[in-house]
């Protein structure tokens, strides 16, 4: 279980290693509020889709499995969308179309296809949770950097003296790619160094 958690968070981090779910990662990570919201919504969907698909892995025939997975994932995403609209309108408004787009987040389908349909419900639940938290952690790191540099704020509060000129590029898509590249490089450097010692 510890290994599985490490896999999702570090060794097989969906964003930093598997490079899945790039679209929301680049588009949403402009503020910590958005990054955290998106990460937790995706974690919710991953957790329950992994459980459902794992529980049904012996019932769903091979040739209609992808269609069934998409129906299940789309249902969970719509549930999240409706709940956000009802109880967290501010988050729903700022994430907008990216919530329905979790359906096509390849990280969710990839875990269903490569893990949940071959493993037990418990293992799949842990996998969904760890992958979701890995996704959230990567989004948090990206959105913290982009919010600090791009808007001069942290958690919506100004952190620099009034003379600070925010770097607008960081709030745009290129800034997202640059941030992602730097974080991946840092992660690689750290794991290479660790590997060298061992």
């Amino acid at each position: 279980m510890g290994n599985q958690l490490k896999n999702g968070l570090i060794y097989q981090n969906p964003v930093l290693v598997l490079l899945l779910g790039m679209c929301p990662a680049i588009a949403i990570s402009t503020s910590i509020f958005n990054g955290l919201g998106m990460g937790l919504c995706t974690t919710f969907v991953l957790f329950f889709s992994n459980i459902t698909i794992s529980a049904l892995r012996k019932v769903i025939p091979e040739n209609v499995r992808i269609a069934s997975y998409i129906v299940i994932i789309a249902t969970l995403v719509t549930v999240v969308d409706l709940l956000l609209q009802a109880y967290m309108p501010a988050l729903s408004r700022s994430l907008g179309l990216f919530i329905p787009l979790i359906v096509v987040n390849c990280a969710v389908l990839a875990r269903a296809e490569s893990f949940a349909n071959k493993n037990t419900v418990l293992a799949s639940a842990i996998d969904g949770l760890s992958m979701g938290l890995g996704f959230t952690a990567a989004l948090l790191a990206m959105s913290a950097i982009r919010e600090i540099l791009g808007a001069g704020m942290l958690m919506g509060r100004n952190i620099f003296p009034s003379g600070f000129q925010p770097v607008q590029l960081m709030t745009l898509a290129p800034g997202g790619f640059i941030t992602l590249g730097c974080i991946i490089a840092l992660k690689q450097w750290m794991s290479n160094r660790k590997g060298g010692k061992a």
């Binding site: 025939p61 209609v64 069934s68 129906v71």
Partner: peptide
């Protein structure tokens, strides 16, 4: 295949209808 996919879709629709009504 047809049966299972239809069942999955039907159960999911019910779940959505329930969420829609409550929210």
């Amino acid at each position: 295949s047809i049966l299972v996919l239809s069942l999955v879709a039907a159960i999911c629709s019910l779940a959505l209808a329930y969420t829609n009504i409550t929210t």
